[in-house]
Design a protein around this nucleic acid. Structure first.
Lengths: 152, 152
DNA sequence: TCATCAATGTTATACAGGATAACTAATAGT
DNA sequence: ACTATTAGTTATCCTGTATAACATTGATGA
């Protein structure tokens, strides 16, 4: 089998560069790697990536209804219910019925939730620093985010 | 609520830039978008992203055992079995027991499989061209792949 | 030799994420 | 008043992924 650049995988002799031009594949690998790091870092806080993003979104948009937050996260309303219920049980968020429309449950962080998120943000900042290091600087990070935006 | 740049979401009034610095989140969004496009483009061929990559890997590394291909794809051996069996049933790949070690099943594309992959590569090339357009050129694509490599 | 251990592939099973349908309660439109 | 729509909920399913147990075959060392 031809090996253009001699960069064989020692263990298997597999020509892995076959996947080089497949952007989707590279994207998925990077995403999995970053998410696994996230999960391991946040394991002590029992917080998964989507959950962290949910808390950030509620913190920065307090009082919005479930539908808005779920849509912003591209999570189906049906699946968002248990997610929200779990965090209410944990005392981190609060669902307050709107006086104007009793169907609506407006979302807020509790004081506990604010403190919890503050701790999470510290961990997350460290993670982002790690990522910036691996990428080679903040410019590279900004470039990456810019390119990802164009694909999303 | 403060809106630094005035870029509100008209529908919900949600401040979505809260997630801007979260690289993992952007990564996931881009990956989902690219994969959904892939799935829709390849729907007529009944081919999913991981399956396409599997065929490419087998084509460029014929005669390797299941374990090697599964490892290269980061798919658990147990889960790879049904995947391979399905494609054998479809007549696209062949599992040939190695004479040296009868435990090993070496993987090859059939002639049908080669023809099938050739058609798939055309579709995929079109998709990559789309992606390059969205990114703004081949240099941007190369830059993206380079950055993704550093994260994986 | 042969007893033991390791590697390959397989089956069964469980669990998490994400998707759909059907439902209740509340509101809006006519 | 009657109807349609919206917000939230429940139940259920499908897919991808993870683990455990197993049969077969091969490798290793007393």
């Amino acid at each position: 089998m031809a090996k253009p650049d001699g960069s064989a995988e020692p263990e298997t002799g597999l020509y892995a560069d076959a996947t080089a031009p497949i952007v989707g594949y590279r994207l998925r690998r990077a995403q999995i790697s970053v998410f696994q790091r996230f999960i391991s870092v946040f394991e002590p806080m029992q917080l998964r990536p989507a959950e962290y993003t949910m808390l950030v979104l509620i913190a920065d948009n307090p009082g919005h209804k479930q539908t808005d937050i779920a849509d912003a996260l591209d999570i189906k309303h049906a699946n968002f219910v248990t997610l929200v219920q779990d965090f209410e049980t944990r005392g981190l968020i609060e669902r307050r019925p709107a006086s104007s429309d009793r169907r609506i449950k407006a979302l807020y962080l509790t004081q506990q939730g604010e403190a919890f998120l503050a701790r999470a943000r510290v961990l997350h900042d460290d993670m982002e620093k790690e990522i910036i290091d691996r990428l080679g600087g903040t410019e590279a990070r900004d470039k990456l985010v810019q390119l990802l935006e164009r694909l999303a």
